[in-house]
């Protein structure tokens, strides 16, 4: 059984088709990277998975269970298993770091506060922010905020972590600290779908790379295959442009 199985998934904003017949499987412990030009549907795919954008067709199964995106309770169940980290971090501005990481486990999952806080401290230490527990988001750098956002997602104890261009909004010198955090997660065996433009990182970390263009998957395979021997002209053109610099 696949950890996540996406079959012929489609989505559209009105008449604007953003995903067409996307099929993809993710196994436990795998890191899948989605690459492709802006507007190719990578982020939309993640948004559809967590129920922020409704699909117009196709199915998604997580650990063998079908997610019904017309049902709030089904979406909620799926969100107990998946967590997403956004490009713009989206930390709650009215809460300090500890508050951001612990609020959902305490208030939504109704877990014991002490236990959650102890876990949160561990998580924040893992992302290198043990000294920032009482800082507010606007007192942190982008890289620090993004690491808090990752800790916040991990505090939900997801089986699958979705990372949506988590380094795209960061200054170049802050990218490394976030990528290091993700590397550590990968080596800990976290199952992840990563949308990224950091090709060197994608190549290093991914078990499989999937290239999207205009809402479709146009190529997939091992990192070496995709980057060194792309089979489609579109992929050759794309990698040719971005790998040259």
């Amino acid at each position: 059984m696949h950890h996540l199985k996406i079959t012929n998934l489609s989505s559209a904003y009105g008449k604007n088709v953003v995903l067409t017949d996307v099929s993809l499987t993710v196994d436990k412990g795998q890191v899948i990277s989605l690459v492709g030009p802006s507007g190719s549907g990578k982020s939309t795919l993640l948004r559809v998975l967590v129920g922020l954008t409704p699909p117009t067709g196709g199915t998604v199964e997580i650990q063998g269970e079908l997610i019904n995106y017309n049902s709030k309770s089904s979406i909620k169940l799926s969100r107990d298993r998946m967590a997403i980290v956004f490009q713009q971090y989206n930390l709650f501005q009215n809460m300090d770091v500890m508050g951001n990481v612990t609020i959902a486990p305490i208030k939504i999952k109704k877990r014991d506060r002490k236990e959650v806080e102890a876990e949160a401290e561990d998580l924040l230490e893992r992302v290198g922010l043990a000294d920032k527990l009482t800082a507010y988001p606007d007192q942190l750098s982008g890289g620090q905020q993004q690491r808090v956002a990752i800790a916040r997602a991990l505090a939900l104890q997801p089986d699958l972590l979705l990372l949506d261009e988590v380094t795209s909004a960061l200054d170049p010198e802050l990218v490394t600290e976030v990528l290091d955090t993700i590397r550590r997660l990968a080596s800990d065996g976290m199952t992840m779908i990563i949308v990224s433009h950091e090709m060197g990182f994608v190549r290093e970390i991914s078990d499989q790379v999937v290239m999207m263009d205009e809402g479709r998957i146009i190529e997939r395979g091992l990192p070496a295959e995709i980057f060194d021997k792309p089979t489609t002209d579109r992929a050759r053109e794309f990698f040719g442009k971005i790998l040259r610099h």
Binding site: V50, G51, L52, K76, R79, D80, A83, I84, F86, Q88, N90, L91, F92, Q93, A104, I108, R152, L156
Partner: peptide, 10 residues
């Protein structure tokens, strides 16, 4: 985005 982050966390 604040609201989306909240709803993604149920």
């Amino acid at each position: 985005q604040q609201i989306e982050a909240a709803s993604a966390m149920n």
